[in-house]
């Protein structure tokens, strides 16, 4: 009943062995690149390349078909709309663009573990951490909690739905969502207490939870790195 939570498909093809950061960088550049190019002569081979990459993953055909049904609806509708409202040439360009992106993204998604992608993202976030807007430890905690609680929320949703079906109620979204949200809010206290009890975020990144801590002004923030930077600057 629980949905499978990753598109990753274990394997040992060249794409599987390629480094996650390279794959994601190429995908990012391709995502920007295809929107800068209009000519089908360039986009055509790009789409072909993406298709070859996807086929090189050697997905079982059945599974591949399942992954492609969603994208293909988009792939069919968007160029069709472009052909109706604009010209056939635009339709070809748009179709090839989307084809390249969707196929390449699927190839990368199928061959890269979610944990590897998250590692890359965390590394990408690290420069932002210096601006103090992002706390990589908190992001990591949030991601792992979310992954853990998606199946949990799914079960709760079905529990509530069944309980209401048993009472002859069917499908009022308000009646479904209020109990779901309230249950989630209630469990947040317990989960936070459990996380704190395990000292999960490293002490440096954690807000100290003590009697008067809330009213007290925030502690002076880590002078150590700033000091070190000064040393570097002077020395």
């Amino acid at each position: 009943m629980t949905p499978r939570l990753s598109l990753y498909l274990p394997g040992d093809t060249p794409l599987h062995r390629a480094r996650a950061d390279w794959k994601l960088s190429v995908l990012l550049l391709a995502g920007i690149g295809v929107f800068l190019v209009r000519s089908p002569a360039v986009l055509g081979p790009c789409a072909g390349l993406a298709a070859v990459a996807l086929l090189s993953v050697r997905t079982p055909p059945r599974q591949l078909a399942r992954h492609l049904t969603g994208p293909f609806v988009v792939l069919a509708l968007v160029p069709a709309a472009a052909a109706v409202f604009q010209s056939a040439a635009t339709a070809v360009t748009v179709g090839l663009r989307l084809c390249t992106l969707l196929l390449a993204a699927l190839a990368v998604t199928l061959t890269t573990r979610t944990s590897d992608i998250l590692d890359v993202l965390e590394r990408a976030l690290r420069p932002l951490e210096r601006t103090r807007l992002v706390n990589a430890a908190a992001v990591g905690l949030a991601v792992s909690l979310a992954l853990r609680f998606i199946p949990e929320a799914f079960h709760r949703f079905h529990d509530i739905r069944e309980a209401q079906a048993a009472r002859g109620l069917s499908g009022s979204p308000v009646a479904l969502l209020v109990p779901l949200a309230v249950r989630m809010l209630k469990s947040a206290e317990d989960i936070a207490a459990a996380v704190d009890a395990r000292c999960y975020p490293p002490p440096a990144a954690r807000h100290t939870e003590r009697g008067g801590a809330a009213a007290a002004p925030p502690p002076a923030r880590s002078p150590a790195p700033a000091g070190r930077k000064d040393e570097e600057a002077t020395g």
Binding site: P3, N135, A138, L141, A142, V143, L145, A146, F149, I150, E152, A153, F154, F157, H158, L180, A181, M184, L185, S187, A188, E189, I191, A192, V195, D196, Y200, P201, R206, H207, E209
Partner: peptide, 22 residues
């Protein structure tokens, strides 16, 4: 950010995901 804030964010992220799955 306190731990509880992170937990609430993760839980509502889970709710958003589940509402798309069901």
């Amino acid at each position: 950010m306190e731990t509880k804030d992170v937990v609430l964010i993760a839980l509502f992220c889970a709710i958003i995901v589940v509402l798309g799955l069901v």
